[in-house]
Amino acid sequence: MKFNPFIFFEKASRLRALLFAFLILCFCLFVTDFFVRRYVYFEIESTYNFYSIYGFIMFSIIIFGSRLLRLLLGRPENFYAKKAVDSEDYPGTEEK
């Protein structure tokens, strides 16, 4: 078997380390903003850590908004027709 970087992180401890590294990165980014004076197009952009906060909140809005959307508009796969593309399997593949 060739080397597969993804399998390397299968181990829970390594994955946790990766996650930890990511958290540290986030923290660094958060702190760095304190030291940087940014050139801005708009007033709002100069708010402390505008991008971090905006990104975090907006992402959450997207997740909850889309769940609401599914609640309203979600339908079973064969809603339009019994043999619609939505519900059929891709024809003629080599592995079932």
């Binding site: 996650l19 990511f22 958290l23 990165l25 986030c26 980014l29 958060f30 760095t32 903003d33 940087v36 940014r38 050139y39 850590n49 991008y51 971090s52 906060i53 905006y54 990104g55 975090f56 909140i57 907006m58 992402f59 959450s60 997740i63």
Partner: peptide, 19 residues
């Protein structure tokens, strides 16, 4: 520098929200 920083802030914190 600031462009890279702000972009990374946006993306990383979005990923954080995802996690």
């Amino acid at each position: 520098f600031e462009h890279i920083l702000t972009q990374l802030q946006l993306l990383c914190f979005a990923i954080l929200a995802f996690i």
